[in-house]
Design a binder for these strands. Structure first.
Lengths: 147, 147
DNA sequence: TCCCCAAAGTTGATGCATCAACTCTAGGGG
DNA sequence: CCCCTAGAGTTGATGCATCAACTTTGGGGA
C-alpha cells in the first residue's frame, strides 16, 4: 500500500467513526436512545401493523439473530418494545412498540433526520453524493449479494 | 428527509458496517488480531524507538484515553505489548511492542494491507476515490478541527 | 404415527466503545 | 516549604457487536 492509499483508508475510517459517534451522541442527547434502538424502532414503525417476528427484524435490519435478540431484551427492559405474544418458554413470537416506544420514534424520526441531514447529507456535493451512493451499493452487492 | 435521502443514508450505514466487519474477520482469521489491536500495533510500530506513552497513543489514534487504557490492558494480557516502565502504582509510563507483537504486526501490515486493497481501494473508481477522500477530509475537519 | 431435522429464538462469553468518577503526580505560586 | 491544581492514567459500569452452543417447535417423510 502506498502512503497515499494508507492516508485515504485512514481518513475514511476516522471520518466514519467521528460521524457515527456524533450522530449517536445527538440521538442520546435529544431523544434518549441509541442508534441501535433507533434502528429497531424505525423498523417496527414501518412494519404494517407495527408488529414483527424476530426473523423479520433480522431480515430487515441485516443483523444477526443473536444481536436482535439481545437488543430486544435490553429494549424490553426499557419499555420501548413488548412481546405481543410469547411462545411457551418465554420466546418472543411477535414484537410491537409500546406507547412509549411509539412516542419516542415519532419524535426521533424528525430530530435524527435533521441531524443526519446536517451532519451528512447537507455536507455532500452532488458528485460526492453520487460517488458515495454508488460505492455503497456496489459494496453491499459484493459482500452480501443475497439479502 | 426524502425517501431518497433515507436510502442513501441507509446504504452508507450498511456498506460501512459490512466492510468493517469483513476486514475485521479477515484480520482475525489471517493474523489472529482485531482491528483495534492492529491500530495500536501499527501506531507503535511507526513510532521512533517503537515506544510511546499513553497520551501519545491517544493523540495518534484519536481515541479517548480510557479506551486506550482498556485496550492496552487486554493487549498486555495477550502478550502483544508491554509497559517498558511503570510508575509507582502500576501506571504505564512507556509502552512497547513485545517480540510477539512485532512479529504479528509485520505480518499483518502485508496481509491486512492486501485485504484493504482488495475490499476497498481496488473497488473504487478514481472519481469515487476522490469523492470519498474529500468527504472524509471535510468531515474530520468539521467535527474535530483541532486534530 | 412417530421420528428427525431444520428453522426460530435464546443464552453466555468475550471484546469493543463510551461515560463518569477516581487516583496519582509533577510543577508553580502563596 | 507546602498546597493545590491541571494533566496523565486507571477503573467500573453499561451498552453494542459477534461467535458458538444450546433449546424449542413445527412439519415432512419412513
Amino acid at each position: 500500500m502506498t502512503p497515499d492509499d494508507w492516508e485515504l483508508w485512514n481518513a475514511w475510517v476516522r471520518a466514519q467513526r467521528l460521524l457515527t459517534r456524533e450522530l449517536d451522541r445527538g440521538l442520546q442527547r435529544d431523544c434518549g436512545i441509541s442508534k441501535a434502538e433507533f434502528s429497531v424502532l424505525v423498523t417496527l414503525w414501518r412494519t404494517p401493523g407495527h408488529e414483527a417476528r424476530v426473523a423479520d427484524l433480522v431480515e430487515s435490519l441485516g443483523w444477526e439473530k443473536s444481536r436482535v435478540s439481545h437488543q430486544l431484551t435490553r429494549m424490553e427492559s426499557r419499555d420501548l418494545v413488548t412481546p405481543t405474544r410469547s411462545g411457551p418458554s418465554g420466546r418472543r413470537t411477535g414484537i410491537s412498540l409500546t406507547a412509549h416506544g411509539r412516542s419516542i420514534i415519532q419524535d426521533a424520526l424528525v430530530v435524527h433526520g435533521n441531524n443526519i441531514r446536517r451532519h451528512f447529507l447537507d455536507e455532500l456535493t452532488p458528485s460526492q453524493a453520487d460517488a458515495i451512493r454508488s460505492w455503497a451499493e456496489q459494496t453491499i452487492e459484493r459482500i452480501e449479494p443475497a439479502g
